[in-house]
Design a protein around this nucleic acid. Sequence first.
DNA 1: AATGAATGAGGTTTCATTCAT
DNA 2: GATGAATGAAACCTCATTCAT
Lengths: 197, 197, 197, 197
Amino acid sequence: MLDMAARVFGARGYHAASMAEIAEGIGTSKTMLYAYFGSKEQLYLACLGRAGGLLIERMRSATPPEMPAEERLWAGTLAFFSHVAERRAEWSVLYKEAVLESGPLAAKVAELRQEIADVVKRVIEQAVEERGVTQLDEMHTEAIAQAVVGAGESLANWSVRDGSPPAEMLATLLMDSTWNGIRPLLQGSRWSPPPAT
Amino acid sequence: MLDMAARVFGARGYHAASMAEIAEGIGTSKTMLYAYFGSKEQLYLACLGRAGGLLIERMRSATPPEMPAEERLWAGTLAFFSHVAERRAEWSVLYKEAVLESGPLAAKVAELRQEIADVVKRVIEQAVEERGVTQLDEMHTEAIAQAVVGAGESLANWSVRDGSPPAEMLATLLMDSTWNGIRPLLQGSRWSPPPAT
Amino acid sequence: MLDMAARVFGARGYHAASMAEIAEGIGTSKTMLYAYFGSKEQLYLACLGRAGGLLIERMRSATPPEMPAEERLWAGTLAFFSHVAERRAEWSVLYKEAVLESGPLAAKVAELRQEIADVVKRVIEQAVEERGVTQLDEMHTEAIAQAVVGAGESLANWSVRDGSPPAEMLATLLMDSTWNGIRPLLQGSRWSPPPAT
Amino acid sequence: MLDMAARVFGARGYHAASMAEIAEGIGTSKTMLYAYFGSKEQLYLACLGRAGGLLIERMRSATPPEMPAEERLWAGTLAFFSHVAERRAEWSVLYKEAVLESGPLAAKVAELRQEIADVVKRVIEQAVEERGVTQLDEMHTEAIAQAVVGAGESLANWSVRDGSPPAEMLATLLMDSTWNGIRPLLQGSRWSPPPAT
DNA sequence: AATGAATGAGGTTTCATTCAT
DNA sequence: GATGAATGAAACCTCATTCAT
């Protein structure tokens, strides 16, 4: 039921989507949508909640804290791209209204995005602890996490247009671009997944 | 004239923005908007065109081909964050409807985004030529450019919420995260801008 | 069962009341309401019937024909104000849709109001017979009854807002205003209830 | 423009009236109604305001303070019934939602009704001053005014159904019923308008 | 050239009423 | 006998777009 809503919201965006289209897609009537969700906004929030919850849950369970940091980063990244590839509509819902400026919708979207960023942040902090010779202040860590998430989003969206390369390839590309860095690439140093434990 | 349109479109998004609000903001009537632009869609396209054109022009002129690659990357990045900081509304217009799936709007947004990515791509290709011991195939380069652009977007949006750090700091953070890579960071290796030539 | 319906109809009016709210108030389902009453209109008619019946019954039984006219008028007035005070919701139902112009609802409301007016009318006719030196034609009697009823309604509604004075006071006020007349009031002549027989 | 709205609101009541019907009656579109009035509620308030304002204005200007009290009462009453007869729809609007329990509509209706009652109250106070041997306390005066207004309303509504007797007759009936009182009627003492000054 | 009035379609939401269980 | 799910119509309101002045 939320699936169809996610499909329509994902395709059209919150404002352009109409309750009628969603209802018709489900094969029911607008009245039922309202009986279950109360309002368009609440329906959208339900979609957001589910889409975000599933993605975050998958990333979290793929990255147990006892794993070493780099391995966790890889596993989380892979989980992210796999999930997005499998549930494209939901991903669109999450990504779509990314820039609403106010209101409960904006708050929820920001909250979910932040949860993803937090997953990344914790891994980076762990990496710092593991082998950091240096310290990264809070803002630095946060900013890097935001950059990584943005790079991931961008690759995810790009992949949809360019033939949907497999999640492993996308994850490798992201590790190359951010974890390893681009400069080393130029020297022929490519990142490769750690051997599975 | 396009400024006000950009402000409203940027704040509300394409669908939620109303021609009436734009006209009122300009201090004219809707009829004039239609006389000049023909339709809401064309007005939006005009906003997009201007916002994108200005940003790209600024990035292009900040990165003349005779500069060395790394310096160009830095200069382009700096230009990007400066521009976004100065013209936030326009940036929102560019970013907002980023994921529409079809129609002329989606095409234009995708085209502009690609133009920015192309700026990055060319610099990476130059870097490969300059000192690459290895080659990067087309897709690899493209993907990295997309990742860098995504990271940049994400930092740009994040910066709005977190106290608007200066463009230099954001650019440094982006160079750190992508060009240099995160791993070197852990060893204390921070990226620093090349001495101005 | 009709009690709750009366409460809701009285509070919201016929159109603004919803079958759902009534059903929920009773603690049953809308289907049951329809099983018992058939339609919203019929339910409203049932409420009207009961509310009107009870009020009229009370007024009638308080005014047996063998009483002298003035005493009957007093007793009926007292019964009216007491009843309204005790069953405010029902009174609201009776009074609320007072001015619908057509349809079975309008007919029923008008009929009930007329029944009350008739009670008054009969007492006035009796008073004429008892001590009338003059005759009052039918229309005159009717009009006076309508005026008295209207004055009573108005006092009843006013009393709700102004601290609910006791029924005796309201009845005295009505006797003063109509039976006795206002002019005598100015001379200090106040009406007072006849000694109970 | 407000005329048609008053007609529809008067005939159907606030809730049952539809903006579409009003618009169609005017020969325009709903959009225009909303352009001019903003919402159904505001349109209703506008109707109320006009209907109430005109009636009160007419009653006020018919009763200049320098007139003797009884004459003023007669003139005001006559003005009231004349106005109601001439502008029946507006009167219905005023009277219809008389018992809404809350909200801005209820407040406005109550306010207007109170303004009419105040006109009556002032005349009664004047009568007391003129020839009163006794005093009436505030509450007594208020209650009598309410009773008179209610009696007037009732006669006004009744007159619509019963062949619309002329305003003079209705006014005489009201004076008979309230000012003079019913009891004197039984002795053959009918009220008659004071000779015009 | 410029505006206020106008339009018609479409959006969200609610409700009286009925069916399947 | 009783309920939750379902329906379809209609309500209020907004908007992109156009016409008459």
